[in-house]
């Protein structure tokens, strides 16, 4: 079993998607990225709705797309299941009829198809078999959509923002259920999301797409610990700098260095959490401290803390207490010194 191996270049007007993606059978990969990164374009390409101009898409031993040889398998013959944000259950069919649709389209007799559909709905804990889609809750509709896609045993399941249509109250429960159902499915699964938490909970691997390219890929822990782009760093709440390390110091800009706790060499990413940053009115003492001067740009309440954006040669975020904000008299335009202990700084090769 080889799963999905896709390497596609898709042109949509002036936007160019150039991405490579692999999903093993039984694996759930989360495709994470900001709006306009090309997530939907990649999904549509895998579904056969956009034809790539270059590349190769293979699912198992079947070539689905190979522009060089003119191969393009239409959606109907791809064995690809779709679950979209608003689920798109057929509005004039009951839950059972929706789930049975794929089997009926394949020529399975009506009674048999309905029987199998009922089994699937049971597995998905949906008891409202005869209800029309508009009478189902968001969570139920999602499970019906999932059952409808899975009953025909697709080799690849594509989910486009499957939790976005739910209200915040039900989302955690539905997310946990979805994770359980996806774990039980033996095919390749790709979940598109812009929500990092969703990507971390659902994905065994995360692929970050930015500006039409894969910016980073890895397990949720790897991505969270070692972000490689500003977008990922912001998502996981880390400050990210880039520099060149020579031993226990990394040069991040002209005349600016970061003291590190461990020895590293070559181009590195340097990260530290906003909570590790101390703000003070004067340059702090202490050799193991990194200190940079800057100007407060913005303040934002973040739970019990205040997140301060500091501009200057080293732009960073600092989480401080409201008391500290008052004592330091922080406001946009206030000059401050930001310092971080070397032991709080993590550096890893770029």
């Amino acid at each position: 079993m080889t799963g999905l191996a896709a390497s596609v270049v898709v042109e949509r007007g002036s936007f160019i998607l150039d991405a490579e993606l692999r999903v093993q059978p039984g694996e759930v990969v989360a495709l994470l990225g900001p709006n306009g990164a090309g997530k939907s374009t990649l999904l549509a390409a895998l579904a056969g709705l956009h034809r790539p101009v270059r590349g190769l898409v293979k699912l198992g031993d079947t070539v689905l797309d190979e522009p060089a040889s003119g191969v393009h398998v239409p959606l109907r013959d791809r064995q690809v299941g779709l679950v979209v944000q608003d689920y798109l259950l057929f509005p004039r069919m009951s839950a059972v009829e929706n789930v049975a649709f794929g089997l009926r389209a394949r020529g399975v007799a009506r009674a048999m198809a309905r029987e199998r559909a009922r089994e699937w709905l049971g597995r998905m804990d949906v008891a409202e078999h005869e209800r029309r889609p508009r009478q189902l809750s968001g969570g139920q509709a999602q499970r019906v959509a999932l059952a409808r896609a899975l009953i025909v045993e697709p080799a690849l399941l594509l989910l486009d923002e499957p939790l976005a249509a739910l209200d915040a109250g039900t989302r955690p429960r539905v997310r946990a259920e979805l994770r359980r159902h996806l774990a039980a499915y033996g095919g390749c699964t790709l979940v598109v999301t812009h929500d990092p938490l969703e990507a971390m909970v659902l994905g065994e691997r995360i692929v970050v797409l930015e500006n039409g390219r894969v910016a980073q890929a890895g397990t949720p822990a790897e991505v969270a610990r070692h972000p490689r782009t500003d977008y990922v760093a912001r998502l996981v709440g880390l400050n990210l700098l880039r520099g060149n390390a020579t031993g226990k110091a990394a040069r991040i800009a002209d005349g600016l260095t970061v003291t590190l706790a461990h020895e590293v060499h070559g181009p590195v990413h340097v990260t530290f959490p906003p909570a590790a940053v101390t703000l003070s009115p004067r340059r702090p003492d202490g050799s193991a401290r990194n200190a940079w001067s800057g100007t407060v740009e913005d303040l934002e309440v973040h739970g019990d803390l205040v997140r301060v954006s500091v501009g200057g040669p080293v732009p960073l975020l600092a989480d401080v207490t409201p008391l500290a904000v008052a004592e330091l008299g922080l406001a946009p335009g206030t000059p401050v010194w930001a310092s971080v202990k070397a032991t709080e700084v993590s550096a890893y090769p770029r």
Partner: peptide, 28 residues
């Protein structure tokens, strides 16, 4: 909404089945 046609196609429905069972009922 033509996306219903895409869902139907992904489930293996022919254009005729899709028209008869999905499109036509929606414009009934």
């Amino acid at each position: 909404d033509s996306r219903y046609d895409q869902i139907a196609a992904s489930l293996g429905a022919s254009p005729w089945t899709t028209f008869r069972r999905v499109t036509l009922p929606s414009v009934a």
